[in-house]
């Protein structure tokens, strides 16, 4: 309690003997110069720090970022353009290849058709020749068969005449048979 008067004296008119504020400390005139002095110093320091170092740095970072973003967008557009070009080239190559393939297949088809036609014609000719040959052979066979029939008929007729007790020479019989067969 001995310190009370000293504290009161030193603290001025704004603090009571218990160290509590008398009224509003905001209105204590004793403290105003101190606050104003330190405030001015603080504001000057903050202003210098911000305007000399912080704000230019942040501005440059933001500008750099904006530049980077703009560049990236430009690069992306360039890549997109290249991709579109590549796609166009691919489409063109594909169309070309398809046309070529069609041409090749058409040509091959034509060739095969020509070969086929040729082979068919050859086969037809062969078949016709074979047919003619066969027909000729058949005609020969038929002719020889008719000849044989006449011969057999003459022999048989001669034999039948002899068996019936007649007698006839071979020339008569064959002439008679020949007449019959003609008639």
């Amino acid at each position: 309690m001995a310190t009370e008067p000293i504290a009161e004296e030193l603290a001025g008119t704004c603090v009571d003997s218990h160290g509590s504020a008398i009224g509003m400390p905001q209105l204590c005139a004793d403290w105003i110069p101190n606050q104003v002095f330190w405030l001015v110093i603080a504001l000057v320091v903050v202003f210098l720090v911000l305007s000399r170092i912080a704000l230019p740095r942040i501005a440059s970072v933001l500008a750099e970022r904006r530049g980077t973003i703009t560049n990236d967008i430009a690069a992306a557009e360039e890549l997109k353009r290249q991709a579109a070009e590549a796609e166009k080239a691919y489409d063109k190559a594909l169309a070309d290849a398809r046309a070529e393939a069609q041409a090749i297949s058409q040509k091959t088809r034509d060739e095969i058709k020509a070969q086929l036609d040729e082979a068919t014609a050859a086969a037809d000719a062969q078949i016709a020749a074979k047919t003619a040959e066969s027909e000729k052979a058949i005609a020969e066979i038929r002719a020889s068969a008719m000849e044989n029939v006449e011969l057999v008929a003459k022999d048989t007729a001669g034999a039948i005449v002899a068996a019936l007790g007649g007698s006839a020479d071979a020339a008569t019989v064959s002439a008679a048979v020949g007449n019959r067969m003609k008639g």
């Binding site: 504290a7 030193l10 603290a11 001025g12 603090v15 160290g19 509590s20 504020a21 400390p25 101190n34």
Partner: peptide, 14 residues
């Protein structure tokens, strides 16, 4: 209102 009292940081003077 005591929280608004301005105090010397070192010592106890005016």
């Amino acid at each position: 209102m005591d929280q608004f009292i301005v105090k010397p940081l070192f010592g106890d003077g005016a």
